[in-house]
């Protein structure tokens, strides 16, 4: 790797795992994950519930439940955030990376005015005076597209609609000009027309501020218009990673292909619906071979024997499958 590309790397996950201790034994929510995020890049992490997509980044932010344990490395500009003391992590969390959650109310304090919640960040992390902080905060409210920001500045969170609240949370996250913004299903709780507004906002702001965006979502449709690169997770592993166009055009892993084909489309009549049989595996009782093998239309004997590793298929495109590349027609006959 040359010096230049090395400098370009913002976040690097190396052999990163998360294990939860439960009374019924250890559960590995994320296993041996490797991922590189470059500056200003927009990456989408796609997976169904239980795929470990949210836990991955809660772990990096140090926000796991008490029984959760991380291992491996998560290098943010070369510094391992997993090894940081809580104090140091607090600093990094406010300044270098910020997170936006699905439910905006979890991020907002219901008993504080919007103004206070926004300016507090600036006063703590960037040493602004109260007056400078409110000017800066108001400016940010304008940039996230809040109409009439001076009036809304003095409201409480419950006086705003869901879409407005999510905008406020995004404003809060971006105030400290973080290098990495992690958004965990930021539009799932919102209506379609509001979702479109928020996605546009992410698109514009991250480009403007050169912030890297990690968008965690279950919805491949949301990803299509926003991400540069997509990583698909299944049962705690990345099963495929590729640039967005390539992933949609030539999905290599049967799971990605099936997921893509299973999405109903608003712009097409689909008579033969692709159905993925079965359900995601229980993390406590994973199959011996490939995690997707019990549901896979292309399963063969070697898939049951041992788990496949991520292998590079094309530049920037890798997948963990012994028999990649099924076509849509093939899927249909097995549904």
């Amino acid at each position: 790797m040359t010096d230049q590309t090395q400098k370009d790397v913002l976040l690097e996950l190396k052999d990163y795992s998360i294990t939860f201790k439960t009374p019924d034994g250890d559960v590995k929510a994320v296993s041996n994950m490797n991922l590189t995020v470059r500056r200003g890049e927009r990456i989408a992490i796609v997976g169904e519930s239980g795929s470990g997509k949210s836990q991955t980044f809660l772990g990096i932010m140090g926000l796991l439940a008490k029984n959760g344990q991380t291992s491996g490395q998560a290098l943010l500009e070369g510094r391992d955030v997993l090894a940081l003391k809580p104090r140091e992590l607090d600093k990094v969390r406010g300044k270098d990376m910020a997170m936006v959650f699905q439910d905006p109310m979890t991020a907002l304090n219901p008993s504080l005015k919007i103004s206070r919640q926004l300016t507090e960040q600036l006063e703590i992390h960037r040493g602004f005076t109260a007056k400078a902080a409110s000017i800066e905060a108001l400016d940010m409210l304008k940039r996230v597209g809040i109409p009439d920001p001076t009036r809304r500045f003095n409201l409480y969170p419950h006086e705003l609609s869901g879409g407005m609240r999510q905008r406020i949370v995004i404003a809060m996250a971006l105030l400290t000009k973080p290098k990495l913004l992690i958004a965990d299903e930021p539009t799932t709780a919102l209506d379609v027309t509001i979702q479109a507004q928020i996605l546009d906002l992410f698109n514009d702001l991250t480009a403007e501020m050169n912030t890297a965006l990690l968008m965690i979502t279950h919805d491949l449709g949301v990803v299509a218009g926003l991400a540069d690169r997509v990583a698909v997770m299944y049962a705690g592993n990345i099963v495929e990673e590729a640039p967005v166009d390539e992933l949609f055009e030539k999905p290599a892993h049967p799971y990605t292909a099936a997921l893509h084909a299973a999405i109903p489309r608003p712009d097409q009549d689909v008579d033969d619906l692709v159905v993925i049989p079965g359900r995601p595996p229980n993390l406590q009782h994973l199959p011996k071979g490939c995690n997707f093998s019990p549901r896979c239309p292309k399963v063969q004997d070697d898939c049951i024997d041992r788990p496949p590793q991520l292998e590079t298929l094309a530049p920037q495109h890798c997948a963990a499958c012994f028999h990649p590349f099924p076509r849509r027609e093939e899927l249909l006959t097995h549904a």
């Binding site: 479109a196 546009d200 299509a224 166009d245 489309r265």
Partner: peptide, 19 residues
């Protein structure tokens, strides 16, 4: 227009009605 379409090329091309 706001419904997401799982096709990156189409998604970039189409003109959205921004409500």
């Amino acid at each position: 227009s706001a419904a997401p379409i799982p096709d990156p090329k189409l998604a970039r091309q189409r003109s959205r009605i921004r409500l």
